[in-house]
């Protein structure tokens, strides 16, 4: 899955605050490291050499010992002061994280599964709500309040260019607030080991201008496009009548499964399988035929259909923009 995923390339205020904190800590820690290594190097350089047979110095020279004691005391005092500075920097960044204005937020309910992300926008508003998976679109400049849940094992939501991570813990609900201040595609990945295919549980956050976001949002709220040719119609029929419908939902058709990503507008997504394959016609067909090849151990079994049936299903899903 392609996208910017660098904590050192912040695209929003959360990640920016953390980037500043990182810089502050890096500078201070590097200085402390350099000074300590310099002290060690000077000590090594200036101390005379001896062999094992040299007798040990038991009588410490008072002046030298006093000088050493002064150095140690200054070292500790300096370290303590710097630690205090970093402590305040940390608290300051912490407060900045919680100070994100939340007016006019986009609300998303994110549920972590093994191994994909289920998203419901505006879940409290039946007129506005819709479901999607693995790819979140957000408007630039508006806060996004995400409620995080998990029903199976612990996952963790992390999009480094936007913010730090938050765990999704079964039995507990947490929230995270992010805001993208720059248009772009930001990649994230599950950051708490959740089993077999934890490595392939990615997601993207696509930050768009408010107009493009509104267009995307209204599109998502509509039911699935009707098939425009016979092949797509055949594809829809197969989807509704075979195993696809047992797990997947496509709003406006008879497919109403809740155990797998919502496919109503799947063609508009860049990737399938939470980042496992790109959403191109060829790869889509291969994914449908045998998802296990790309992501062994996922819940989606191989689909055993004739080649033209497979093409029909793929064509139909490819039409669901």
């Amino acid at each position: 899955m392609n996208g910017i995923h660098d904590a050192l390339a912040p695209a929003g205020p959360q990640a920016l605050a953390l980037f500043h904190l990182w810089n502050a800590m890096l500078v201070v820690c590097t200085v402390v490291f350099a000074l300590t290594m310099a002290a060690l190097a000077i000590a090594l350089w200036r101390a005379p050499r001896a062999t094992e047979r040299a007798s040990a110095d038991l009588d410490a020279q008072p002046r030298k010992e006093a000088a050493l004691r002064r150095s140690v005391v200054w070292g500790i005092a300096g370290s303590s002061v710097l630690l205090l500075v970093l402590l305040f920097a940390s608290f300051y960044a912490d407060r900045a994280l919680s100070a994100l204005p939340l007016a006019d937020a986009v609300h998303i309910d994110l549920v972590g599964h093994r191994f994909w992300w289920e998203a419901h926008y505006e879940p409290h508003d039946p007129e506005q709500t819709f479901a999607t998976a693995n790819e979140l679109h957000v408007p630039v400049g508006r806060p996004v309040l995400i409620r995080l849940r998990a029903d199976d094992v612990i996952h963790s939501f992390w999009v480094p260019s936007l913010s730090g991570k938050k765990d999704l813990i079964p039995g507990r609900e947490s929230t995270i607030a992010v805001r993208a201040d720059r248009v772009g595609t930001y990649r994230g990945q599950c950051a708490e080991f959740c089993g077999y295919q934890h490595a392939q549980m990615a997601l993207v956050v696509v930050a768009e201008t408010p107009e493009r976001y509104e267009r995307w949002r209204s599109l998502q709220r509509e039911p699935a496009h009707a098939p425009s040719d016979a092949q797509q119609a055949r594809g829809r029929e197969l989807v509704e009548q075979t195993s696809c419908a047992m797990c997947h939902a496509i709003v406006g058709t008879r497919a109403g499964g809740r155990r797998a990503p919502d496919l109503t507008h799947v063609a508009g997504r860049g990737w399938l399988g939470a980042g496992a394959v790109a959403n191109t016609p060829k790869l889509r067909a291969e994914w449908i035929a045998n998802a296990q090849k790309f992501k062994p151990g996922v819940d989606m079994p191989p689909i055993d259909v004739a080649a033209d049936d497979l093409a029909a299903i793929s064509a139909y899903l490819g039409s669901l923009e």
Binding site: T36, A39, L40, I42, A43, L44, R46, A47, P48, R49, A50, T51, E52, A54, D57, A60, Q61, K64, E65, L68, R69, S71, V72, G75, I76, S79, S80, L83
Partner: peptide, 20 residues
């Protein structure tokens, strides 16, 4: 802080010793 104290004491020992 206690770890730093130990490190500084060790460096002080090295600084005040004859090294093998």
């Amino acid at each position: 802080i206690p770890t730093a104290l130990q490190i500084f004491c060790w460096i002080a020992t090295i600084a005040g010793g004859r090294l093998v």
